[in-house]
Design a protein around this nucleic acid. Structure first.
Length: 401
DNA sequence: CCTCCACCGGAAAGCCGGGTCA
DNA sequence: TGACCCGGCTTTCCGGTGGAGG
């Protein structure tokens, strides 16, 4: 009986009308036919890279712009076109793309070089070898065929923050040891990190600099319309939906990625509720959902010690309205450890965990001075009230012995 | 104006589990 | 098997420090 019900459920699901025609178009990995509002930047990149077709070494490029301003997309798009020409004309040229933020893939010097070598067909074990050895292997792969390489390092700031500029330094001078020519394209949404770079690396990396300004609301609107045309079925977008999405995204620094995500989730919400059209209400709902999912996702993937810390903060907040200090959190945390039979970490460590929560936007922690009574952080919770019960449940479950 | 609290936060080093290689 | 490597997580050490209270 139950099976029967489930079967019909699936059948109904299968036959259900969706507002989507091709959802992938709204994902950030999708590269559209034409890229709107980035003509200038596309041209700049193309101009700089073009010499590669004549076997000259293009200058290194440093690309900077806030999140969702089309840096990655434009770079990928341009290099893709470049490759098409080089393939047609039989010009040896290779583009390697690496995202330095991807955990366990390219977020350390070893892994970055290993990743690059892997893309050139060398297989490198994920660990165990001296980094030096990996470099040698990479070099051998480069030399196997003399040609131009364009190396795209996305989110390069993450790499620098985590592991310093060693890798970058080595990469910028790798040309001295090889027949092939390597050009770097560094992409970053943070510009301050450049200051901490070795001057040699800095000047080498930013032989050319390209800035991606944020989109304004109108530009985001046209981007959304361009994608929506392919992504959705005919006539599913309600009055003012695109406008509202764009307005939300423009509100905080014109992030096109967020706008697209908002639109996509709004569509999913509409689907789930069996609406044939997406309305502006769905957007509000989508915004809340994205928020909640983000928080829940962050917290569930956090290790146990972090849960204990957060639980301590939560229970402190429950009783009072005034602010919470690090010392108090640590006291509660310690007693919690005792109760749950967990090893106790140092206050120094807990302090770091709290700032991590702060950076993740789960908690707001500001350093203040209480004069005579010392210096500490004031901590408050930033989790939307609607998710608090869920979070509490998650924490309680993981905190239990 | 000086003191001195209760932490902050950088640097370095240790531990441990994952791995390679000869 | 032992010497060695990498990377994540912690601990240790320790020099700051904003501002209320004296």
């Amino acid at each position: 009986m139950i099976e029967k019900g489930l079967e019909t459920f699936f059948e109904v699901f299968l036959n259900k009308q969706s507002v989507f025609f091709d959802k992938r178009v709204l994902q950030s990995s999708y590269i559209p036919e034409t890229i709107l509002h980035r003509e200038e930047q596309t041209k700049q990149i193309a101009t700089i890279l073009a010499p590669a077709l004549k076997k000259d070494k293009p200058s290194n490029i440093f690309i900077y712009g806030k999140t969702g301003t089309g840096k990655t997309l434009t770079t990928k798009y341009t290099t893709q076109k470049l490759m098409q020409v080089s393939a047609k004309e039989n010009i040896p040229l290779k583009v390697l793309y690496v995202n330095c933020k991807l955990k366990r893939s390219a977020d350390t010097e070893y892994r970055l070089i290993a990743q690059l070598a892997t893309e050139l067909g060398k297989s490198i074990p994920p660990t165990g070898l001296p980094t030096e050895e990996v470099y040698k292997s990479f070099l051998r792969a480069l030399n196997k065929q003399k040609q131009n390489y364009i190396l795209i390092l996305d989110e390069i700031d993450q790499l620098i923050i985590k592991t310093g500029d060693n890798a970058l330094y080595n990469l910028t001078r790798i040309n001295e040891n090889t027949e092939s020519q390597i050009s770097l394209i560094g992409i970053s949404n943070d510009i301050v990190f450049v200051d901490n770079l070795d001057p040699r690396v800095r000047s080498s990396l930013s032989e050319e600099e390209i800035i991606f300004p944020p989109y304004n609301a109108l530009q985001i609107q046209s981007i959304l319309k361009q994608r929506a045309e392919i992504a959705f079925n005919r006539d599913v977008l309600g009055q003012g939906v695109v406008e509202k999405c764009a307005a939300y995204a423009a509100r905080d620094h014109g992030d096109a990625r967020r706008a697209l995500e908002l639109l996509r989730v709004a569509g999913e919400v509409a689907d789930r509720k069996n609406y044939k059209k997406i309305t502006t209400e769905h957007i509000d709902e989508a915004e809340g959902k994205i928020d909640r999912d983000r928080v829940i996702d962050i917290i569930t993937t956090q290790p146990r010690q972090y849960h204990l810390v957060l639980y301590s903060i939560l229970s402190l907040q429950a009783g009072r309205s005034n602010s919470i200090f690090t010392g108090e959190v640590y006291e509660i945390y310690k007693s919690l450890c005792g109760k749950t039979n967990t090893s106790v970490l140092t206050q120094r460590r807990i302090s770091d965990i709290i700032s991590e929560f702060d950076m993740l936007g789960i908690v707001n922690a500001k350093v203040i001075s209480k004069g005579r009574y010392g210096r500490t952080r004031t901590i408050s919770i930033e989790i939307p009230i609607t998710v608090l019960p869920i979070i509490k449940k998650i924490l309680e479950e993981s905190t239990r012995v």
